[in-house]
């Protein structure tokens, strides 16, 4: 009986964990993409101070979320985002516009990909 209860608890925890993880990844992706869009918008309106402020917010938000994401995703994926954020910071302080645009695109893809790694899909299973 105790074994059955234990297995049931494990089942519930596993199922609950799946839902929570999926929700957290979705939230993170959404929040980070939204901040990135704000950075992009602010940069194209040539508001340097505002851009700097939003970028800092984006980086802080990312660092906070990375503490949990590190236990959910392969560390390589997080390292890629850290590097791209540093690259973006560099480009924002005076870089090639084409490269900057590419960096925005890449970060957007990496943030979107946070949910895709573990998304329930045919491609992810097979």
């Amino acid at each position: 009986m105790l074994r059955k209860i234990f297995l049931l608890i494990i089942c519930i925890l596993l199922f609950g964990g799946c839902i929570l993880q999926s929700q957290y990844l979705k939230d993170s992706s959404h929040a980070l993409r939204s901040l990135l869009a704000q950075v992009q918008e602010s940069h194209y309106t040539h508001n340097e101070d505002q851009t700097e402020k939003i970028y800092t917010k984006l980086y802080t938000q990312w660092e906070e979320r990375a503490n949990i994401l590190i236990s959910l995703l392969p560390h390589q994926q997080l390292d890629d985002i850290y590097l791209e954020l540093a690259h973006l910071k560099c480009l924002l302080t005076g870089g090639d516009e084409a490269e900057l645009s590419y960096s925005f695109e890449q970060l957007d893809y990496l943030f979107t990909h946070l949910t895709k790694t573990d998304m329930f899909s045919f491609g992810n299973i097979f």
């Binding site: 494990i10 596993l14 590190i70 236990s71 959910l72 995703l73 392969p74 560390h75």
Partner: peptide
């Protein structure tokens, strides 16, 4: 070392179930 702990934990538990 770059793989989170749950990548070992979750499959083990799933196999147990």
């Amino acid at each position: 070392p770059g793989t989170p702990f749950i990548y070992g934990l979750v499959p083990s538990i799933t196999l147990l179930l």
